[in-house]
Design a protein around this nucleic acid. Structure first.
Length: 285
DNA sequence: CCAACTACCTGTTAGC
DNA sequence: TGCTAACAGGTAGTTG
């Protein structure tokens, strides 16, 4: 499941390989991939052709290609990888891939393939002048790697909420880029129970959690950036993923690496939370 | 406005 | 062996 470190790895891989290239043509192979592009498939395909890729940018888990063409409005091709989205580059003329949802033929004859087994990911095209972020990304909070990220302000915002800290981390509202895996990892590192309210943690407690969010994401990015193909980020624990160094997520029943107690898995809003019952005890309510 | 719930998907695995 | 059910979970839309 791509969270911020994985999306950033994809961004770097794309940036290294496609910046400066021109999109000759596009194909949409599955209508669901462009369900968020309001003007539909024909508009998407027609409009993107001929544009040059100036840069690949990211906020949280949202990724976008900055596009420009002579005498044409500037555009952003926005991508969200959802659960299983990937970009691949190929020199092949024909893309034989049952999960390929859209393809972009470049003028140099390479093809960028957007593939997505579970189809939670999407692409859309929007006018964007290059300032700030495109409209569909505007509701997303800054992520911990953004130069303008202000951890103190995020901690203050969290401390104002009665919601549980894990919910706050996952909301993409105050801070973006955190998914279920890194939320569990950061809370394990900070020794905080996921249902502890922001207000009871107070600014200082929230700051300690956010320190660990940044630390675990930096570690994952360091691991990811060197150990696998950025244009083929694995979906779920395939080759060389960061899960080797996970301390909580997916470790139900295994001994806590800090105290030896068995890690618990609990239901949390239709998904799983992993925690150590000893290091992260339930808060007083 | 905020919080909580659910639909959207499909490949894999567990269980009978 | 073959079938069914559970599971993985980010986002956006809906409901309260």
């Amino acid at each position: 499941m791509p969270e911020l470190p994985e999306v950033e790895t994809v961004r770097r891989g794309l940036s290294d390989s496609v910046v400066g290239a021109r999109i000759e043509s596009a194909r949409v192979r599955h209508p669901r991939a462009i369900r968020r592009h309001e003007l539909g498939r024909r508009d998407f395909v027609d409009r993107v052709a001929g544009y040059e890729i100036l840069a690949v940018r990211r906020r949280g888990k949202f990724l976008w290609w900055q596009l420009a063409a002579d005498d044409q409005p500037q555009l952003a091709l926005i991508a969200h990888l959802g659960m299983s989205g990937q970009f691949r580059l190929t020199d092949k003329q024909r893309v034989v891939d049952r999960h390929a949802r859209a393809t972009f033929r470049l003028a140099d004859t390479r093809t960028v393939v957007f593939r997505d087994q579970r189809t939670f990911g999407w692409l859309r095209l929007d006018d964007w002048d290059g300032d700030g972020v495109p409209e569909p990304v505007r509701h997303i909070g800054l992520d911990p790697f953004d130069p303008a990220y202000d951890q103190k302000q995020v901690a203050i915002g969290m401390a104002r909420s009665e919601s549980g800290i894990k919910r706050l981390l996952l909301s993409q509202n105050l801070v973006s880029g955190v998914g279920n895996i890194y939320a569990d990892e950061a809370l394990w590192r900070a020794q905080v129970h996921p249902e502890t309210s922001g207000s009871s943690l107070a600014e200082e407690g929230c700051r300690r959690v956010l320190d660990q969010v940044a630390a675990v994401m930096t570690a994952a990015l360091d691991a990811g950036g060197t150990s696998f193909d950025p244009l083929y980020v694995s979906v779920n624990g395939e080759s060389g993923w960061f899960d080797r160094s996970l301390d909580a997520y997916g470790r139900e029943g295994l001994p806590c690496r800090r105290c030896g107690h068995a890690i618990l898995r609990e239901r949390f809003t239709n998904r799983s939370s992993h925690r150590c019952p000893e290091c992260q005890p339930a808060p007083f309510v």
